[in-house]
Design a protein around this nucleic acid. Structure first.
Lengths: 187, 187
DNA sequence: TGGATTAATGGACATTTGTCCTGTAACAGC
DNA sequence: GCTGTTACAGGACAAATGTCCATTAATCCA
């Protein structure tokens, strides 16, 4: 069974509701490097990551800086753009081949009208997103680059094999040169 | 008129609703240095900053690291603790004398039941909080310390007079020694 | 499959930022 | 007003991280 179904089933929706909800999503495959969101374009979809990993980044002085990243079983969106329907400030791209489920903002609102408990679910989803962003923010402040690398090694070991190191460096907030030093330290 | 009233009036609530909503808040004065939230304690209140400025921080190896800060007309809470009702990971304290309005989570839920449009308001508040956190996160990544200082100089000039420089340094994510260098550069 | 392109490693050096410290100024309480 | 305490500025040095580059390894695709 797909992770999307599992996810909504585990949120306490009935089988019928899960069908109705997941029916609002369309599936889309993203090849490594494909864009989910591009800077300047307004985000139409909220995505659920069935498989894969996505990186949020901005370009400053021609250099890519990662602002966030998200893996399987999580939702993905340029939140400010999607929520306010304004052009995105950031890019989001798949750093490995990824399978996503997409839903439009209008359908998300429709579900809130059609299924009473969905509004509560949506509030909880927003609260959850806040917690996730918060954790990533605390990590960035409380851990140094090596500790963040070790945390990633621990949480997503297989991912580190798949992502090009230059992306990984950007996700960790350091240069590839410094990531090379960190990897050397650990050995 | 208080900023709290103005805030809810500007959100489109009727005069009666504004009265009912603001009636759920209690006012509390925080002297410079007083704690709004302490690490390890579960946050009971969501606060609205009528006047003042608050700093969120964690202590690592005996050193305070600021994770977020909030000024007038904004809400304040250790969000994860308040939302999930678990012990807070961070401290929040007033860095200048501050006046807050406090509301309990249960009353926040009650208002959502009593005033239909309040649930929508609450969703928008959460969405707004996400946008605020997001902006602070992007600032931390996209700007260097001097640019963050200049942005603060621009946005909150009077605040910089009032906050002890050691706090300001922590808010900017640098040591006091380095803040001294930055101030020197700008002159 | 071979040649061209891209990615990873790590040396040498530069820059940024932190640590430790000292002198001075501001302030609080008696 | 004196005195102990705390806050601020900045020198000297150290550590962390970035820049630039050359070498080697991996990957792509005609």
């Amino acid at each position: 069974m797909e992770k999307l179904h599992q996810y909504f089933a585990s949120c306490g929706f009935s089988a019928d509701e899960v069908e109705k909800i997941t029916g609002c999503f369309i599936s889309k495959h993203f090849k490594k490097g494909d864009f989910f969101t591009q800077e300047g374009k307004t985000s139409r979809y909220l995505g659920f990551i069935e498989k894969g990993f996505l990186q949020y980044y901005v370009v400053i002085d021609g250099e890519e800086k990662t602002t966030y990243s998200a893996g399987e079983n999580n939702f993905v969106a340029s939140l400010v753009s999607f929520l306010k329907q304004i052009p995105a400030k950031e890019n989001i791209r798949a750093v490995v081949d990824s399978d996503l489920w997409l839903i439009e903002r209008s359908q998300l609102k429709q579900l809130q009208n059609d299924i009473p408990s969905f509004k509560t679910f949506y509030v909880e989803l927003l609260e959850w997103q806040i917690c996730c962003i918060d954790e990533s923010r605390l990590d960035a402040i409380m851990l140094n680059a090596q500790q963040r690398y070790e945390k990633m090694l621990d949480k997503e070991p297989e991912l580190i094999q798949k992502i090009p190191l230059q992306y990984l460096a950007s996700i960790l907030g350091v240069t590839p040169r410094h990531l090379s030093r960190i990897r050397n330290n650990i050995r």
